[in-house]
């Protein structure tokens, strides 16, 4: 868990941390690979929601360089397969996500990220 799709959808939400608060940096991550069901319609439909550059970077950091640097206009099967693997099959089990702006550390344990803020961090 903490699949890269999730990593791509979470931003630091500490109060007043509104710029450069995404993507969260991966730190000391332990990975697991698990097969997931392939669904081309889901992938095509979800692409517009993704921050592409952040996804490619995160994938590279965990050792997957199968994605093109720019999101392609035309998607083929091969591309969708790679996208599927990157989004859904790479799990971060342990480690942390760190805000590049305010340095807040969001720890991940047993696959669940703790995104709770401390009292002085809420708006």
């Amino acid at each position: 868990m903490v699949r890269l799709i999730t990593h791509n959808l979470l931003a630091c939400h500490v109060k007043r941390c509104t710029t450069n608060n995404f993507p969260l940096q991966l730190k000391d991550v332990q990975l697991a690979l698990r097969e997931a069901e392939f669904n081309a319609d889901f992938l095509r439909g979800f692409m517009p929601r993704l921050e592409w550059t952040a996804l490619v970077q995160a994938a590279c950091q965990v050792g997957d360089d199968s994605l093109p640097l720019e999101a392609p206009e035309m998607v083929d099967d091969e591309f969708l397969k790679n996208l599927h693997h990157v989004l859904l099959e790479i799990h971060i089990e342990e480690g942390a996500m760190v805000c590049p702006n305010c340095q807040h550390v969001y720890p991940i344990s047993n696959g669940i990220p703790n995104m709770l803020l401390a009292e002085n961090e809420i708006g």
Partner: peptide
């Protein structure tokens, strides 16, 4: 996590994309 154990029992483990801890009124959705 307990939820993943039960999800595995029902054969839907891989469809539970993620579980996160946060207050929904202070949520991190980008």
């Amino acid at each position: 996590p307990g939820i993943m154990r039960a999800a595995a029992q029902y054969g839907v483990e891989q469809r539970v994309i993620d579980l996160c801890t946060f207050d929904v009124t202070q949520n991190p959705w980008r």
